[in-house]
Nucleic acid binder design. Structure first.
Length: 479
RNA sequence: GCCGGCGUAGCUCAGUGGUAGAGCGGAGUCUUCAUAAGGCUAUGGUCAGAGGUCCGAUCCCUCUCGCCGGCACCA
């Protein structure tokens, strides 16, 4: 069996999950479920990034101990995954021991030539607790903390010789050995390289990190830069630290490794991460799938604007598959997409209630009434349903286009019913009518099969209805 | 500022060097198996603007206007 590794990125837990996190979960889940459907042995990973300094700051603001704070948020992300029917195999938290061990092992595996200590000096904002760049300042002050005096801080950090990997990375990305999808993100990554790759800091002082994070092996005064430890989560969940058999199976020997990420962290996954792996002589991922962000009524989702959409509320109101449908079909797979509840409802009614739900009802009612026994389905039939355009799109990560194929089939079946009129034929030509209905049920089974990665619960309901030769309960109630 | 992209029917978007396409919404119509669902038809666009290349441009080139994205720690 062919092994695949698929991951989501691991979100910061400084806030509760929003609609964007849900989108990424679902996209990765669609890919994972599709590969399983095709017989692949998939390890699907998600988790949380808990070592970021932002988490420490957020916890302090909330007046809660940091471990308690991050645990609470991690739970929320786990709950979201469950609510969205995400079929992940593991959920890794970067505060777990296996992660610390793995992050440190990765550090120690880096080519010693690539790690060096250097004094770094910069303008430090005590309010933000981060270094600022000259160009980010507004008349000499931090935009977030206008009154606060900025300090010139100098300290020694470890650096990673990223510059050394520029040519190798360019070659990997250009050739597609490291596929960055879509093309525009690939070009962006190449542009980063062309602009010149500078070595980057991979640690910070323990004080500055408030002692929160993964200690640098052999140097107690330093904490690993959060991105270095965070990226290693992909390895650590598989037991990289303990050289687990799973690590060999799903990473080293995997046929395919895919990271699903948001556009904001393209650079880390297409440049920093491969470079670190190259340095540590570890097998590279094959594909980085980069999605866009969700806007709300054309505006960026933000706490300040107060338009952050809570995925839990939507699921509660409309159901898991309704939201999964929206992500897969109504949002462009790689570009930014817009959410409004009006559009969501319009699409729900048109495509789930009237489109899918109604077709299942009309076909299964005909079957229930006129067929004595459930329609027998061969495996070939289901495989057949998956070939062609649908499969082509799925292989190219074109989630929306693959979903379009399914809804095109639904339309064809509605046309078929209208054209052949089996409901009328039953009176004059019962055999012909039965043939039509059988055909419809078989086609429906094919649709259910294709639907499995997208709307797993609904697909299951349709399969059950076919197996029992019974019209199911209303799948999607009109709103 | 630099780099890149986009501007096509009311909305979301495909598309091609040879007199424009889909889905949704709206209109009309047929139908009743179905979740007042479904089918069909018509309507709907000087393909942002100007100039150029060409027998011919929405598609290639130049410029203008407008919008958006990336530019080192944001899903």
């Amino acid at each position: 069996m062919k092994q695949h590794f698929i991951s989501t990125s691991i979100p910061y837990v400084n806030a509760f999950p929003h609609l964007g996190h849900a989108l990424e979960f679902v996209q990765a889940d669609v890919l994972a479920r599709h590969r399983r459907l095709r017989g692949g042995d998939v390890f699907f990973l998600t988790g949380t990034d808990e070592n970021a300094l932002k988490n420490v700051q957020a916890a302090r603001e909330a007046g809660v101990a940091v471990p308690t704070f991050v645990a609470e948020r991690a739970e929320a992300f786990k709950r979201l995954a469950a609510k969205l029917s995400i079929a992940n195999d593991e959920f890794i938290r970067t505060t777990e021991k296996r992660h610390f061990d793995g992050a440190q092992k990765l550090w120690q595996s880096l080519d010693p030539k690539d790690v060096y200590k250097k004094a770094y000096s910069g303008i430090y904002c005590v309010g933000c607790e981060e270094f600022k760049l000259e160009r980010d300042l507004i008349s000499g002050f931090c935009p977030e903390h206008p009154g606060k005096k900025l300090e010139l801080v100098e300290e020694e950090n470890y650096f990673f010789r990223l510059s050394r990997y520029a040519d190798t990375l360019r070659e990997l990305i250009t050739s597609g050995k490291l596929a960055v999808i879509p093309e525009s993100r690939k070009n962006e990554a190449l542009a980063f390289i062309d602009q010149g790759l500078e070595d980057f800091s991979i640690s910070r002082s323990k004080e500055r990190a408030h002692g929160w994070g993964v200690p640098v092996p052999g140097d107690e005064s330093q904490i690993m830069f959060v991105w270095v430890d965070a990226l290693s989560n992909y390895l650590n969940a598989l037991g990289y630290a303990s050289d687990d058999a799973r690590f060999t199976k799903y990473w080293k020997e995997a046929e395919d490794i895919t990271h699903v990420i948001g556009k904001g962290i393209n650079r880390f996954h297409t440049l920093y991460w491969p470079a670190l792996l190259l340095s540590a002589n570890i097998r590279l991922p094959d594909t980085v799938f980069v999605h866009g962000y969700i806007t709300v009524g054309g505006q960026k989702m933000s706490k300040t604007i107060g338009n952050v959409i809570d995925p839990f509320a939507l699921i509660e109101k409309y159901g898991t598959d309704a939201l999964r449908y929206f992500f897969a079909r109504d949002l462009p797979t790689f570009e930014d997409g817009d959410f409004t509840e009006e559009k969501f409802i319009a699409s729900y009614n048109a495509n789930l209630a009237n489109g899918l739900g109604n077709l299942v009802a009309r076909v299964m009612k005909l079957a229930e009434t006129h067929l004595e026994a459930p329609v027998v389905l061969g495996k070939e039939l289901l495989d057949e349903a998956e070939r062609g355009e649908y499969e082509t799109h799925m292989k190219q990560f074109q989630i929306q286009k693959a979903a379009d194929v399914i809804w095109g089939r639904l339309r064809e079946l509605d046309e078929y019913v209208t054209r052949e009129r089996p409901f009328e034929k039953v009176a004059t030509d019962i055999d012909g009518a039965k043939k039509d209905i059988t055909h419809l049920v078989q086609a429906l089974a094919g649709i259910a099969h294709m639907l499995t990665p997208f709307l797993p619960e609904t697909a299951e309901k349709i399969k059950t209805a076919i197996k029992e030769n019974k019209k199911p309960e209303t799948l999607f109630q009109r709103i």
